[in-house]
């Protein structure tokens, strides 16, 4: 097996895009250490996934199969992943809800130190330094892992989407190691936020709304502009907290981190924790009636105006441009 293990994530039989960003981090580590990497994915009845992970330069693609892995649960997946990574020096996954949940448990099982939400890997083999955000990204810490095994979650927006290399990786299907007697939790179900819009973390345009919208019903103003642009919809923590929109839409320190080509913040003041989730966007537009709102300090284009009067005009004119 390889010294570097990438834990891939699948949802309903599809590898999530974030995993392809983690592969870039794995390639960087492979280059620094001279090691190869394996991709490990877990589930039940997912033999077909090998094809999706082939061609990315992995020494092997390992498919862990077990009935207890049919649906994700922290206890079973931690066991299966840790057993599969036994003997590895690096375990990497993209920072997703599942990785946040399971990766520390994998680290605990491997006796490893973990760096969370890594932004960059620097230094040389034997003296690697991981850069990671603290205080909502207002400080970047350089951390060193003191254990022989390093566990890393990597922020997808900071590592490019891996392109296929054209090589083929042998695909191995193995029965996962899960001690079912130790499991005291079961998966009950998922209430999915149904949407025909692109995923927030993948979208090239994101339109987000905040408390300036005044009430939940007004959020449709944001959704309308988003749909005109084929964009994803985001939200500030305040409006998630108020119950206007699903938590899945939250952009910020404790929500999702996005870095689209265009981010439009509507009625968002720009609290520190919100900025932490969108500061990496290529172009930022802010629409807010308060000229002193902190969002204008990071916006490339600021429009100081009453959103209720300018949003319909903006939506209409952008729709007209699209024809």
């Amino acid at each position: 097996m390889s010294e570097i293990i990438v834990l891939a994530e699948q949802q309903a039989g599809k590898i999530v895009k974030a995993t392809l960003h983690a592969l870039t981090a794995a390639r960087q580590l492979a280059q620094k250490t001279g090691a190869t990497f394996d991709i490990v994915v877990a589930g039940q009845g997912i033999e077909g996934l090998g094809a999706q992970l082939n061609g990315y330069g992995a020494a092997r693609v390992v498919i862990l199969e077990h009935p207890a892995l049919l649906n994700y649960t922290a206890q079973a997946y931690a066991q299966a992943f840790a057993a599969a990574a036994s003997g590895a020096k690096f375990v990497i996954a993209a920072t997703t809800a599942i990785a946040k949940d399971v990766l520390p448990r994998v680290a605990a099982r491997l006796g490893a130190g973990m760096a969370a939400d890594v932004l960059a890997i620097t230094g040389e083999a034997g003296a690697l330094i991981y850069k990671r955000p603290m205080w909502a990204g207002n400080v970047i810490a350089h951390v060193k892992i003191n254990t022989p095994v390093h566990v890393l979650s990597v922020r997808p927006t900071e590592f490019a989407l891996a392109e296929p290399t054209g090589t083929t990786s042998p695909v191995v299907v193995v029965k996962a190691t899960v001690d079912e007697a130790k499991l005291r939790m079961t998966y009950v179900g998922l209430e999915a936020v149904e949407s025909s819009r692109p995923a927030l973390t993948d979208a090239s345009v994101v339109v987000s709304g905040g408390r300036g919208l005044k009430e939940a019903a007004n959020f449709k103003i944001v959704e309308k502009l988003a749909d005109t642009l084929g964009a994803a919809v985001g939200a500030s923590r305040a409006v998630v907290d108020a119950g206007w929109v699903p938590n899945d839409w939250q952009v910020g320190q404790t929500g999702k981190v996005v870095a689209p080509k265009l981010y439009i913040a509507v009625g968002i003041s720009g609290a520190i924790q919100h900025l932490a989730g969108m500061k990496g966007s290529k172009t930022i537009v802010a629409i807010n009636k308060d000229a002193d709102a902190p969002i204008f300090q990071v916006a490339d284009y600021g429009l100081v105006a009453d959103l209720f009067s300018v949003m319909p005009e903006l939506t209409e004119k952008l729709a007209a441009r699209k024809g």
Partner: peptide, 13 residues
């Protein structure tokens, strides 16, 4: 639980 894409339910002992 708040997860990517919605809300998931788990049962714990």
């Amino acid at each position: 639980r708040e997860v990517d894409g919605g809300v998931e339910t788990v049962s714990l002992t």
